[in-house]
């Protein structure tokens, strides 16, 4: 069993994020539930990836702050933040020839230092990450020889090796077919079951409903709804977000909302 320290809380306080003069996230305050899987959903261009970048300190806020256990992340040293919060960027690319285990070893960098080079513990963590992601057999394969799902699991394994209580994933399944998506989502659920807080940006509302404990629905840089999928997803919300009409039914096996008869909204 992998050791994960008790989850620190991640929240934003009146957060403003912009690109140049264009304000993408405006005065957003949200608290992400610890130990759960949160999905940020919303239409293209609603600011969901920007919000995730802000949470990971890749995007400096104009105003407001991202708070990690109450402390402004802008004040944390990079390595310390990287020991608490791991990020998988969208469409991450590795140099050609890099093997799965070499990629995962990068995850140990925040734990290494001048006096602390590669250790037996690092090796053990890498092996554990390989195991958690089900990639033992592929450890020495170059990434380009893997399927899309395996490759994405390898990247997630790198963030597992970071041993952070918080994990941010930017559209982890966007380029994957259904089978490979399930591979990734099941891994994400497995990680959350060990006590990690996972935040992912998803463009697919259906999988967000199925795999997330908590949804944050974003439109135009504002939160329009947040809560458990079964509690907040309504035809009205779906319409507000995506301009489509649908009928909602309940998945008989999981109890999560399912979108049926999705069609363009007639205005």
């Amino acid at each position: 069993m992998m050791q994960v320290e008790p989850s620190p809380t991640l929240a934003t306080d009146a957060l403003d994020l912009s690109y140049g003069t264009r304000r993408v996230i405006a005065s957003l305050g949200v608290s992400l539930p610890s130990g759960q899987v949160t999905a940020i959903v919303g239409p293209n261009g609603c600011g969901k990836s920007t919000l995730l970048s802000g949470l990971a300190r890749l995007h400096k806020p104009d105003k407001g702050a991202v708070l990690l256990s109450g402390e402004d992340i802008q004040r944390l040293p990079g390595r310390e933040l990287a020991r608490k919060l791991a990020l998988l960027p969208q469409e991450a690319v590795a140099p050609e020839g890099l093997t799965v285990s070499e990629l995962i070893r990068f995850g140990r960098q925040p734990h290494q230092g001048w006096l602390r080079q590669w250790s037996a513990e690092d090796q053990q963590v890498v092996e554990h990450a390989l195991h958690a992601a089900g990639l033992e057999a592929l450890a020495e394969r170059p990434l380009e020889a893997l399927s899309g799902g395996q490759r994405q699991r390898a990247w997630i394994a790198m963030t597992i090796a970071q041993q952070t209580p918080l994990l941010l994933l930017d559209e982890p399944t966007s380029a994957l077919d259904l089978g490979h998506q399930i591979e990734v989502f099941e891994l994400v659920r497995h990680l959350a079951s060990q006590g990690r807080t996972v935040v992912m940006v998803l463009h697919d509302l259906a999988s967000a409903c199925r795999y997330a404990d908590y949804l944050i629905a974003l439109n135009d840089g504002q939160i329009v709804a947040q809560g458990a999928p079964a509690a907040i997803v309504t035809p009205a919300l779906v319409r507000a977000l995506y301009q489509v009409d649908c009928t909602l039914i309940t998945d008989p096996d999981t109890g999560s909302p399912l979108l049926a008869n999705v069609r363009r909204a007639c205005s």
Partner: peptide
Amino acid sequence: ARPLAALALGERAASGLGHH
């Protein structure tokens, strides 16, 4: 050396690993 190696994974991934 170490951050330079991480940069091969892309700027965002390198930042995620705590580098600048």
